[in-house]
Write a protein that binds this DNA or RNA. Structure first.
Length: 159
DNA sequence: CCCTGATTCGC
DNA sequence: GCGAATCAGG
């Protein structure tokens, strides 16, 4: 990893695009890449990747939060998901068809390949899951369940 | 108040 | 070009 201060490298921009297309919120994208939320939004704007200004959140369930119960639903980050899988010894969450035997580089990604990032950008072993992703989905079956958890706030959009 | 994304504007 | 500050909406 170079000593230079990394601005927006190609890897980060690719990650940014992919997470954006995956439907992750800017907050989650920012936390995952390691920059501020505004940095992500600012970059997206410069790339003309904003979804117009009709963002207007649809997640107003939080307004009906129970009075005596302040359970904070933290954004589900990738490392939290991974920790859930690999970190828990007595609660094996069968990830399904997650298999690291098919991992590939960015350039080897195709429509039917899982785009789940492995390791961190810039690392020697940085790559993507590469498993078969069904029906135009960006991730394989196992990773889709992680990326699209109903509990996450990454599910807004009109519903 | 909390959250979200979008734009502005100094750097 | 970058991103913190600010704005705008829910």
């Amino acid at each position: 990893m170079p000593v230079l201060s990394p601005t927006w490298t190609d890897e980060r921009i690719e990650l940014l695009k992919q997470h954006f297309e995956a439907g992750l919120s800017c907050r989650e994208i920012a936390a995952d890449i390691g920059v501020s939320r505004n940095a992500v939004i600012g970059k997206l704007s410069r790339l003309n990747l904003t979804r117009s200004r009709a963002v207007e959140d649809r997640r107003l369930e939080r307004s009906l939060a129970p009075p005596a119960r302040a359970s904070r639903a933290v954004p589900r980050l990738q490392y939290e998901m991974l920790a859930t899988i690999y970190g828990e010894t007595d609660a094996p969450v069968a990830p399904g068809s997650i298999d690291d035997a098919n991992r590939c580089s960015l350039l080897e990604l195709s429509e039917n390949r899982c785009r789940w990032p492995i390791s961190s950008p810039g690392e020697e072993d940085f790559c993507f899951c590469g498993n078969t992703a069904p029906d135009g989905q960006p991730y394989c079956t196992g990773h889709s369940r992680l990326a699209y958890r109903p509990n996450s706030r990454a599910r807004m959009m009109r519903g």
